[in-house]
Amino acid sequence: MKRPHYLFSNGRLRRQHNTLSLERAPGDRMPDDDPTDEGLPSVEPDGRKHPFPVETVDSLYIFGEVDINTKLITFLGQQGVPTFFFDYYGYYTATLYPREAQLSGRLHIEQARHYLSPKRRLVLARAFVEAALFNIERVIKYYQPRLTGDAKLAVQATLTDLVRDREALPLTTDILTLMAVEGRIRDRYYRLWSYFLGSDVTIRFPFTKRERRPPSNELNALISFGNSLCYTTVLRQIYRTALDPTIAFLHEPGDRRFSLSLDLAEVFKPLLVDRMIFRLLKTGEINPKHFEKHLGGCYLTEVGRKIVVAHWDERLSQTVQHRTLNKKVSYERLIRFECYKLVRHLCDPVSEPYQGLHMWW
């Protein structure tokens, strides 16, 4: 069975016959903004080779300082293995995206047509925001019965606003208003996190607002890293379909980014990222020693990133009973199904209208 492979070691990744081999190198990765860096390979392999069959590789996540060459790039492209690169601080920076294996001229035209039509685009953008708000509501309602006093009142007030805004989405007439609604609810949702996490966790991880670049504290660092994992996971599922990842509907398509991944990630962040963070903090698997301060920002250490990635990979493999297929499917497969639902909508929006995933468990 193919699975993502996460590489934290430094070294050289190369093609060895018809498989992959990582030649490890000693030492720690140096910051990418080191003024002494001349752009040359800074690590020398020590001869230790760790081969792994390419048949087991769905995608590669490279967190270490790894050298590659054109032979490897060609091989990964032939095998259809997307590769995601992260910098020293854990920021997602680039994707080595193989040539599309699933091509459909008809779908590409329909996807562009839906983007160019304000009415059709708005229908899909509303569906993404509606599903994101519904899933946020599910997360809030999961913790609501455990709260009392002022915390319960604050949660109920946010829920009231959320339901009102979600029910009013059909009245929105433009994309900017939709994004403003989603952003306002998410900000209020983040202010509830201290209640969900409890006083013991909140003392160690104070959190007042969302700050991105750079993350100002530990929780912001966790959210940023988790969102990057969600974005890249959605992207590699899009790659397995004929969808064009650069043509989006909620987020404006732009240069140097796969905007459709941002659209679909909004649906899954409450389920995958937020719940993962709550568990890691409440169980103590992640604690303050797993973060470091640098250049005015807060970032996960390598040990911290390994813990989060291990939990992320485990979470993607968890299963739920699908209501219509009548069988268990993994969270990762749910993302693929979401792509297929979007494909069906683009090809036949009347008979197969898209509705974003609504958590039922």
Rank of each mutant, 00 (worst) to 15 (best):
Tyr340Met: 03
Asp200Val: 09
Leu262Gln: 05
Leu334His: 00
Ser216Pro: 00
Trp361Pro: 00
His322Tyr: 01
Ala248Pro: 04
Trp312Gly: 13
Lys282Trp: 00
Phe63Ala: 03
Leu250Gly: 12
Gly77Lys: 00
Asn287Gln: 15
Arg279Glu: 07
Asp263Arg: 02
Cys230Lys: 05
Gly105Ile: 07
Pro214Gly: 06
Arg344Gly: 15
Lys269His: 10
Glu218Arg: 03
Glu38Leu: 13
Lys71Asp: 06
Asn18Cys: 04
Pro145Phe: 11
Arg336Pro: 01
Thr160Gln: 09
Ile238Met: 12
Gly304Thr: 09
Ala180Phe: 03
Leu325Thr: 08
Ile335Leu: 03
Pro270Met: 04
Ala94Thr: 10
Arg146Asn: 03
Ile175Gln: 05
Glu218Ile: 01
Tyr231Leu: 10
Tyr239His: 12
Arg113Pro: 04
Arg29Pro: 06
Pro45Ala: 11
Leu72Met: 12
Tyr340Lys: 06
Cys230Thr: 02
Tyr354Met: 04
Leu316Pro: 08
Lys306Trp: 09
Arg256Lys: 14
Lys293Glu: 12
Ser259Tyr: 12
Val320Ser: 09
Leu325Lys: 12
Asn227Arg: 10
Leu235Cys: 07
Pro118Glu: 07
Pro45Trp: 07
Arg14Gln: 14
Arg240Leu: 11
Arg213Tyr: 08
Val329Arg: 00
Leu222Lys: 07
Gly149Tyr: 02
Phe196Lys: 06
Leu300Pro: 04
Leu300Gln: 11
Gln102Gly: 07
Tyr354Ser: 05
Arg113Tyr: 13
Tyr142Ala: 11
Arg336Val: 01
Phe52Met: 11
Arg213Leu: 12
Ser117Cys: 08
Ile203Tyr: 12
Asp67Arg: 13
Thr202Phe: 11
Asn220Cys: 01
Ile286Val: 13
Phe75Gly: 05
Arg305His: 12
Leu159Lys: 03
Leu346Ser: 14
Thr301Ile: 09
Val129Ser: 04
Arg236Lys: 15
Phe278Trp: 05
Leu264Trp: 06
Asp313Lys: 11
Glu338Phe: 01
Leu169Glu: 14
Thr56Gly: 01
Val139Arg: 13
Pro98Tyr: 02
Glu352Tyr: 14
Leu162Ile: 07
Tyr61Gly: 08
Gly296Met: 03
Leu262Asn: 02
Arg279Ala: 03
Tyr6Asn: 03
Thr19Gly: 07
Ser117Pro: 04
Ser42Lys: 09
Gly27Ser: 09
Gly64Gln: 04
Arg3Tyr: 10
Phe52Asp: 14
Met1Cys: 14
Gly297Pro: 01
Ala94Tyr: 12
Glu338Ser: 03
Trp360Tyr: 08
His50Lys: 10
Glu130Val: 05
Leu346Glu: 14
Lys269Asp: 11
Leu342Ala: 02
Asn18Lys: 11
Arg15Leu: 08
Gly64Trp: 05
Val54Asp: 15
Lys2Pro: 15
Phe258Lys: 10
Glu23His: 05
Asp37Ala: 11
Tyr97Phe: 15
Phe85Gly: 04
Cys339Tyr: 00
Val329Ala: 00
Ile307Tyr: 12
His251Arg: 05
Phe75Cys: 08
Lys289Gly: 10
Leu153Gln: 08
Arg24Lys: 09
Arg106Cys: 11
Leu72Gly: 14
Arg138Asp: 06
Val123Ile: 15
Lys152Asp: 00
Ile247Val: 10
Leu147Pro: 00
